[in-house]
C-alpha cells in the first residue's frame, strides 16, 4: 500500500434510511466531483512545468552551448553527451569525478548511519521503559524545531579544531543523526511493531539489542528505506556547508558545480548542464526505484501532522 487513503478508514456514510433522495443526490455528487476535460489540461500543464526544466537540462547536456540560447527551445537530445562528459571530467578546477565519488560516499554513509541510529533511538523511545523517557522524547521533538544550520560559523571553528577542514568527514560526521529520523522511526515502531512480538522475544531470552536487530529492524524495513532515501537526498544536496568547509581538490558534487559556475566556464552552458545532469541523475534513479514509497510517506506524514 502506498497511499494511506486506501487503508485509512473512510468516514461512515450516512445511513440511506435517513436520506430518501440518496440516489439522485449521489449522482449529483459524483457529477460534481467528476473531472472536466479542462481539468486534465490543467494537470498536464502542471506536469509539463514540473518536467520541462529537467528535460531541457538533459537536452542541452547533449548539445553544444549555443543550443541553450536558441528559440524556440531545442527539445530533442543531440549526440554530444559523451563529448561533454569527457570535457567535464577533464576540467581540473571542477574535479567532477572526485566530487561524484565523495558525494556517494558521504550521502551513503550518512543514510546508513541515520537509519541505524535513529531506528535504535526510535525503538527505545517507543517501546522500552526507562527513567526520563518522556523528557528525551520531548527533547527529540525540540531538536526538530531548532534550525541547527544557523550554527554554521562555530561548526566551521569546530572543524578547524578537529583538523577536518577540507576533509570528507567534515561533510559526514555532523549529519550522522537527525531528530526528524528519530521521530519518524518512533512513530513507525509504536504502530508497526506489536508488543506481543517484543514480549515473545524477551521470553525467548533475547537481549535488547538482539530484539532490535532481529525483530524491530525487519519490521521497519519500508520506513527505513524512505528515511534512507530522504537522508541521501539531503546530504547529496548539501551546498552551503560543502562550499564553506571543503576545498577544490576534495569536493562533493555540489562543490564541483559551484566551481564550474564560478570559473570562466560559466558561459559554457553545455558543460554546466552536463554537470547538473550528472548531479541530478543519481537522485532520479533512486526516485524511479523508490518513488512510490516516498509519495506514500509524504502523504502519511501529512495526516499525522
Amino acid at each position: 500500500m502506498t497511499t494511506p487513503s486506501a487503508t485509512a478508514p473512510r468516514a461512515p456514510r450516512s445511513a440511506p434510511a435517513r436520506r430518501p433522495g440518496r440516489s439522485p443526490l449521489q449522482r449529483r455528487l459524483r457529477a460534481l466531483r467528476r473531472a472536466a476535460p479542462l481539468t486534465y489540461v490543467g494537470l498536464l500543464l502542471a506536469v509539463f512545468v514540473s518536467v520541462f526544466p529537467l528535460w531541457w537540462m538533459f537536452v542541452i547536456a547533449t548539445r553544444t552551448t549555443d543550443a541553450a540560447s536558441r528559440f524556440p527551445p531545442v527539445l530533442l537530445p543531440g549526440d554530444r553527451f559523451d563529448d561533454n562528459v569527457a570535457r567535464l571530467f577533464g576540467e581540473a578546477s571542477a574535479n567532477f569525478g572526485t566530487g561524484l565519488l565523495n558525494s556517494f560516499i558521504s550521502a551513503g554513509t550518512v543514510a546508513v548511519s541515520v537509519v541505524l541510529f535513529c531506528s535504535m533511538a526510535g525503538f527505545a523511545l517507543a517501546k522500552l521503559r526507562f527513567k526520563g523517557r518522556d523528557f528525551f522524547t520531548v527533547a527529540v521533538v525540540l531538536t526538530m524545531a531548532v534550525p541547527v544550520q544557523v550554527g554554521i560559523v562555530p561548526l566551521l571553528v569546530l572543524m578547524e579544531w578537529l583538523g577536518w577542514r577540507g576533509e570528507l568527514q567534515a561533510v559526514i560526521v555532523p549529519f550522522l543523526v537527525s531528530g526528524f529520523g528519530v521521530f519518524m522511526m518512533r512513530q513507525y515502531v509504536s504502530q508497526g511493531v506489536p508488543d506481543e512480538l517484543l514480549e515473545a522475544a524477551r521470553i525467548d531470552g533475547c537481549s535488547t539489542f538482539r530484539t532490535y536487530w532481529s525483530v524491530v529492524l525487519p519490521a521497519l524495513r519500508p520506513a527505513m528505506t524512505v528515511l534512507g532515501l530522504l537522508t541521501f537526498m539531503t546530504v547529496w544536496n548539501e551546498y552551503v556547508w560543502a562550499i564553506a568547509v571543503l576545498t577544490p581538490d576534495n569536493p562533493t558534487v555540489q562543490f564541483s558545480i559551484n566551481q564550474l559556475q564560478e570559473s570562466a566556464y560559466a558561459r559554457d552552458f553545455a558543460l554546466m548542464f552536463t554537470g547538473a545532469t550528472l548531479a541530478t541523475l543519481p537522485l532520479l534513479i533512486l526516485f524511479v526505484l523508490l518513488g512510490r514509497q516516498l509519495v506514500g510517506r509524504i502523504m502519511e506524514g501529512a495526516i499525522k501532522a
Binding site: 533511538a121 522500552l128 523517557r133 528525551f136 562555530p154 555532523p174 550522522l176
Partner: peptide
Amino acid sequence: APYLFIAPFFLLFGVFGLFPLLYT
C-alpha cells in the same frame, strides 16, 4: 540498554548540532 540506544543520537546531536548553535 535504553540509554545506550538513545546515546548515539543525543551525543552526536549535542556535539555537532546543539554545541555549535549555542557557541554561536
